Amino acid sequence: MTADGRTLRADARAAPRRGGGTWQAHWETWRPYTTWHPALLGLAGALVAGGSSPGPLAVALLAPVLGWLAGHYLGDYFDRDLDAIAKPHRPIPSGRLTPRAALTCGIACVAGSLVLTIVVNWRTLPVFACAVAGIITYSRLFKQRGLAGNLNRGVLSALAMVVGAMAVAPWPPWALLPAALGFALHDTASNLIGTVRDVDGDRAGGYRSVPVRHGTATAVRTAAVLWLSAMVAVGVGAVVADRPAAQFGGLALAVLVGGCAFVVVRPGTVTPRRALRSHEVLVAERMLLAGVVVAGAAGPLVAGAVVLPALVSSLVMQARMRARHEFPADAGDGEDTP
């Protein structure tokens, strides 16, 4: 542990507990502004695979969400020492949620997701096992190893699409491959932007993230390349989609929105707060991107009906919760260049 790390840990012990009871702590742990994303990924995968029955479609939405919540609970459990240094206001280090409760809830979410997926298609078990392994190894192994951790998170998003497809079909169709690759690249990029936001805490905790090792400018450029590659992959997917014009049209909008995220962190302007705003834009844009795949499979009306309410809900919750979850209340404006 570095001297800075020891100082930050001491400050964390002295930090006041943030208000809110146990249910509030669980709500914060869920990051509800992100949970629409796995639901939309599962739905997109199911629709590309030709799903239409309400029951399997419900599983395609719910199983990835439970897996996503498991990732939050287990990630916070494994990251509790790092959060005690950099984010002492979060539920576990603040004492509002016990590590045992987080671990128990994470395991329960894994079990619930497993039951749902196995009931509709036992062939999903190897995919499910890979997803659980990815959740655990992200915090325990890969998060502190730079780009490998970012890639880990991206692959989890691709697996959510595969789980959704296999809720309605024995095997995922080949037409899903470009979209799954696109989301693997996109969420690798967005997770990398998240490490730019967390660079000070990661450095103090001894985590060798890309911005810690190579600087924030390199991290942003790498994220931009990954994001552009994701747009190309989803565009390739439009060629084999049932409604290519709808997917290409939606993709153009997603490109415009996502591009704004990288304008926010253009060279010479990168700060933790700007990285947070960039990540918030990417959180919204990836929901649009999932809607792009839905539009290619089921048409723009279906895509709009499911994506717009989810997007509005996510934006409202981000505005109310996001900054408070990422930064202590007394952190200031965070606009000093790291």
Rank of each mutant, 00 (worst) to 15 (best):
L282S: 07
C130V: 15
G95P: 11
G67C: 07
D336M: 02
R100S: 08
G237F: 00
R6H: 14
D200G: 08
D4A: 15
I92D: 09
R208F: 09
D200W: 03
A165W: 14
F128R: 04
A261H: 00
R203G: 07
V212D: 08
A165V: 13
G299V: 11
L177A: 15
A25M: 05
N121I: 09
A179R: 01
L226Q: 10
T124K: 06
A10R: 14
G258S: 09
P338F: 15
Y207M: 13
V240S: 09
G334C: 02
A217M: 01
V59A: 10
G296R: 02
R13T: 04
A14M: 01
P328D: 13
A179K: 01
Q247M: 15
F142D: 07
E285Y: 01
V294D: 05
T137P: 02
L151W: 14
A261T: 05
A129S: 12
A175T: 06
L8I: 10
L97P: 01
A14R: 15
G55C: 00
R96H: 05
F183P: 01
L40M: 05
V270Y: 05
L251P: 02
F248S: 03
T337G: 04
G154D: 09
R140K: 15
V110W: 13
S314W: 02
A298I: 07
A238Y: 00
H186S: 11
V48I: 15
P16E: 14
N150G: 11
L311F: 11
G215V: 06
S157G: 06
A158M: 07
A160Q: 03
A179T: 03
L41P: 00
V162F: 06
A39F: 00
A297V: 13
L256C: 14
G334D: 02
Y77I: 00
P267D: 10
A295W: 10
G182I: 03
P170V: 06
I135Y: 02
R6S: 13
P126C: 05
S52R: 14
Y33G: 02
V270S: 09
D83T: 11
A189M: 10
S113M: 13
A39Q: 00
D333E: 13
D202V: 11
P309S: 04
E285T: 12
G258A: 12
W23Q: 04
G268V: 04
R9S: 12
R213Y: 03
V119M: 04
A58Y: 11
Q247K: 04
P16T: 12
A310W: 00
V212W: 10
V132R: 09
G55V: 10
L308E: 05
L308S: 12
V307M: 10
S157Q: 00
A298N: 08
S313E: 03
R286V: 08
A39P: 00
Q247F: 02
A10V: 03
R123E: 06
A297Q: 08
H72R: 11
R96M: 06
V163L: 15
V120F: 01
A60Q: 13
L276S: 03
R96G: 09
P99W: 14
K87N: 12
A223H: 09
G5I: 06
Y207S: 11
M231V: 08
R153N: 15
